[in-house]
Design a protein around this nucleic acid. Sequence first.
DNA 1: TAGATTGTTAATCGATTAACAATC
DNA 2: TAGATTGTTAATCGATTAACAATC
Lengths: 206, 206
Amino acid sequence: MLSLLGLQKMKNKKIPEITISRLSLYNRFLQDLQEKGVDFITSAELGKRMGLKASQVRKDLTYFGRFGSPRIGYEVKQLLETLKGILGLHKKWPVALVGCGNLGKAFLSYPGFKAHGFEISVVFDNDPAKIGKVWKGKKIFDPAKMAKIIKEKGIKIAIIAVPFFAAQEVCDKLVRSEVKAILNFAPCKLFVTKEEEVKVRNIDIA
Amino acid sequence: MLSLLGLQKMKNKKIPEITISRLSLYNRFLQDLQEKGVDFITSAELGKRMGLKASQVRKDLTYFGRFGSPRIGYEVKQLLETLKGILGLHKKWPVALVGCGNLGKAFLSYPGFKAHGFEISVVFDNDPAKIGKVWKGKKIFDPAKMAKIIKEKGIKIAIIAVPFFAAQEVCDKLVRSEVKAILNFAPCKLFVTKEEEVKVRNIDIA
DNA sequence: TAGATTGTTAATCGATTAACAATC
DNA sequence: TAGATTGTTAATCGATTAACAATC
């Protein structure tokens, strides 16, 4: 998510995209280690489990600071907290979900979602039969009110889960709603004029 | 998909993973060009549209053969057919879908799926209320019969769309069913002993 | 102290890009 | 022929890995 939302520099060194993408991998592994009650881990051990070289683990981490101790390695708890901080996992990210068909409902039911700090805080669907109804505790709103509601709630991330023929229109609406990131699950590519301001990730579930 | 299923070499030169992943991009763009009635395109033009350097386009393509003509560029139709061949898009890939909850149903409704040459040819769900029922024209089968049915039909690709606590068991069953590729949409990492034979892609919809 | 592991520098590897002879 | 674009080679760039002094 963070790779979608920014964080390209730190200590004015440029952080390689690929390092950023590995960060959530580290996070997942450390989570696992913590659950198993492991207190410390060396770069060699961490690398072995993740299929990376020890030196790469160390290199990746040093982009963000110095977290290890010679002879001891890294304190799992501390490193995990640091990574979560960097990844913005301490934050709650309110998300707007557009489309409440099968795919949209899958998101509402998806447990991994909340675990990543995302919280679907508003749902839109243009089916008059659905508007006003509640699904999984979320009220479904009229897309006509999209810009107003999204701005009010300060939502910066949206998920498009509508049929492909409706996706571009929804996208335009979201751009006008001033979101910063759009995850498009409709099977089509979306075009955005303000690419600098709004990051679109087209996700093909195939 | 093909990148999941193999194709690492050609003319005994090793093809970079990243080139393979760009192949479907080229395919999509050429499709688009063909629909617009464009007959020929140069590497420069293609690169510009896709955000790649002309030399990279040419380099990528030469891994697979020589398709262009000096002064003219590439014939869209011919190149498209060639790419489709390489990507295996002429083939129909029968797919087993395990789990017919919200996410599973999303797959059954997903139009982009068929366009990629995938065809969900069998669906499993362990809910007795669902077994034997038909959804979107697909009969839902008892997972107990998984290995038998999958082998009979010669299915090589499976999608896991079950809750996370059931995913590893399903995965083990699929491995015993001798599939070659598993796409896991459950929010957990799956482990496979025979990694060489079965490729698992863990897809986090978050 | 002796030894293990860190952070960091330098060497290596692989992918991207520029350059250009060959081609039509 | 003159000129544009290919396929391919060589130079460049950036990421991975090895090596090692610094550290505890």
